[in-house]
């Protein structure tokens, strides 16, 4: 399952600069709103689902080499967060759907 397919199926909004998402294949997912848990538990190339939208999300994602973050519940990151994400190579996607639903649908697609 490529990131492009995920974006299309879940109708995600791309916040960072668009790129060839069909070349990216995420491996597994991680969900938490607690940055300390993500620091401890997320695996590289995971899709991280969270409703947090502040600067530290980008910092943690880049530290853990999590390249894709889905921000849920319509939380809107500030412009400088998006700029930093672009600099650090973190893809930020957003949706108005709640985390539970996004996780469920990812699981359904085989991202496990």
């Amino acid at each position: 399952m490529t990131l492009q397919e995920i974006i299309t199926k879940l109708d995600l909004k791309v916040l960072t600069t668009p790129q060839d998402f069909s070349a990216i294949t995420p491996r597994g997912g991680y969900a938490s709103d607690l940055l300390s848990c993500v620091m401890a538990g997320a695996q590289p190339d995971n899709v991280w689902v969270t409703l947090q939208a502040h600067m530290n999300v980008v910092a943690v994602a880049s530290l853990r080499e999590v390249s894709v973050v889905i921000i849920t519940e319509g939380a809107q990151p500030e412009a400088d967060v998006i700029t930093r994400a672009n600099e650090q190579g973190v893809i930020l996607l957003s949706t108005s759907a709640p985390s539970y639903e996004i996780i469920g649908r990812l699981w359904e697609m085989g991202i496990q």
């Binding site: 969900a31 319509g74 108005s96 539970y100 639903e101 996780i103 649908r105 699981w107």
Partner: peptide, 25 residues
């Protein structure tokens, strides 16, 4: 189990989301 696995499994067993979608739908 973690959040991702639990939510994933429950969703696939038919338990739907029970949060107010922030765009109202």
């Amino acid at each position: 189990r973690g959040m991702f696995e639990c939510c994933g499994r429950l969703y696939c067993s038919g338990l739907r989301s029970f949060e107010t979608n922030m765009n109202g739908s």
